[in-house]
């Protein structure tokens, strides 16, 4: 259960953005169980149960993600249950988050639901994150 360290994500994401700007899209009717790994950007519109490792993750309104998200940047507009590990997190007004948001910069819009904790961490916590802490959400 090792995680791609964010420091390596930073390198690959820059390379990916230079080449293919196309974001991966997990559509409305799609249900994924397991690990989703991406060097670029992932848009989730359907259901994901498991873990998402990516440079940038967008959980769209109507989407549901259960599990862990490890990314540099996360934007949640849908439902999320689990843990987020990201330097920058934006929680939109239509979002409903249960669990923990480990962040360095957090922005929550008025109307968003957050049930859980939002621990702040210094940037080097995320850079050296190659093993997720085994805490329950």
């Amino acid at each position: 259960m090792s995680v791609m360290p964010l420091s390596s994500l930073a390198r690959t994401s820059r390379a990916a953005s230079a080449g293919a700007a196309e974001a991966a899209c997990l559509g409305l009717a799609l249900k994924v169980t397991g690990l989703v790994e991406c060097t670029g950007e992932v848009h989730v519109r359907g259901i994901v149960r498991g873990r998402i490792n990516a440079a940038r993750v967008v959980v769209s309104a109507g989407a549901f993600v259960e599990g862990d998200i490890v990314a540099r940047e996360v934007r949640v507009a849908g439902r999320f249950d689990g843990r987020i590990f990201a330097l920058s997190v934006i929680v939109d007004e239509s979002a409903a988050v249960t669990g923990r948001i480990f962040h360095n910069q957090l922005s929550v819009e008025r109307g968003a639901r957050i049930d859980g904790r939002t621990p702040w961490r210094p940037p080097n916590f995320f850079e050296s994150l190659d093993q997720l802490p085994e805490t329950m959400p």
């Binding site: 293919a20 196309e22 169980t33 690990l35 989703v36 790994e37 670029g40």
Partner: peptide, 12 residues
């Protein structure tokens, strides 16, 4: 649904 080039999925 597009599973783009940069994406790897382990699971269903």
């Amino acid at each position: 649904s597009v599973i783009s080039k940069a994406l790897k999925i382990t699971g269903q």
